[in-house]
Measured scan of single mutants.
Amino acid sequence: DEWTVEDKVLFEQAFSFHGKSFHRIQQMLPDKTIASLVKYYYSWKKTR
């Protein structure tokens, strides 16, 4: 599952609005599965 720079920026924006409500985040990133969002979240969180 490839994440473009745009995907990553959108994820951060969606996360700032919705927190860990992955269903709502998915509405902003409809091409990503919930599982993909959760997996990305945990790898992204480690870099914070």
Rank of each mutant, 00 (worst) to 15 (best):
Y42T: 14
T4D: 08
M28F: 08
S36E: 14
K46N: 09
V9K: 12
W3P: 00
Q27A: 14
Q27E: 13
L29T: 00
M28R: 06
G19L: 05
E6H: 08
A14G: 04
Y41H: 08
Y42Q: 13
D7Y: 04
F22G: 03
K20N: 11
W44V: 00
K46E: 07
K20L: 05
Y41F: 05
A35G: 14
R24D: 15
K45Y: 15
K39Q: 03
R48P: 06
K8E: 07
W44H: 09
Y42H: 11
M28N: 12
T4E: 05
K45R: 13
F15K: 07
T4I: 08
V38N: 12
F17C: 01
Y42W: 14
I25W: 06
S16F: 05
K32T: 02
A35F: 13
K39L: 03
T47P: 13
K20C: 10
T47L: 09
K39H: 14
F22Y: 09
I34R: 10
W44N: 15
S36D: 12
K39E: 07
R24E: 15
T33E: 05
K45D: 14
P30S: 01
L10G: 06
F17S: 15
L29S: 00
E6Q: 15
E12Y: 11
S16K: 12
V9Y: 07
W3G: 00
K20G: 11
Q13I: 07
A14P: 01
V9A: 12
Q27S: 08
T33P: 15
E6R: 11
F11L: 00
Q13S: 07
W44K: 10
E6L: 06
S36G: 12
K32Q: 01
Q27L: 10
V38W: 07
E6N: 10
R24T: 11
F17D: 15
D31M: 01
D7F: 00
Q26R: 12
T33H: 02
K39A: 08
I25G: 00
W44F: 15
L10P: 10
F11R: 10
E6T: 10
V5H: 05
Q27G: 05
V38L: 13
Q26G: 03
T4S: 12
Y40G: 00
S43K: 14
L29E: 00
Y42F: 07
G19R: 08
I25D: 08
I34A: 01
Q26F: 06
T47A: 05
T33R: 04
W44G: 05
Q27R: 11
L10T: 04
S16I: 07
Y40K: 10
E6G: 09
L37G: 01
F11C: 11
S43Q: 12
Y42R: 15
P30W: 15
P30Q: 04
L29Q: 04
S43T: 11
T33W: 04
V38Q: 08
S16E: 15
W44Y: 15
M28S: 08
L37V: 06
E2H: 11
T4A: 05
S36V: 03
E2G: 14
Y42L: 14
L29Y: 04
S36W: 01
H18K: 01
T33S: 10
S21K: 11
Q26L: 05
V38H: 04
K45Q: 13
S21E: 15
Q13G: 00
K39R: 12
K20D: 07
Y40E: 10
T33N: 08
W3F: 11
H23T: 12
E2V: 01
K45V: 09
F22A: 04
F22W: 15
H23F: 04
E2Y: 12
K20H: 14
H23V: 11
L37S: 02
F15I: 14
D7V: 04
P30E: 07
Y40S: 01
S43G: 12
E2N: 15
M28P: 03
Q13A: 10
Q26T: 01
W44Q: 03
D1V: 15
W3K: 07
I34M: 11
W3R: 00
V9G: 12
V5K: 14
K8M: 14
V5R: 12
D31T: 10
L37Q: 07
I34T: 05
I25K: 08
R48A: 11
V9P: 01
I25E: 04
K46R: 09
E12S: 02
T47D: 08
F22P: 01
Q13D: 05
I34Q: 03
A35T: 14
T47W: 07
D7G: 07
K46M: 05
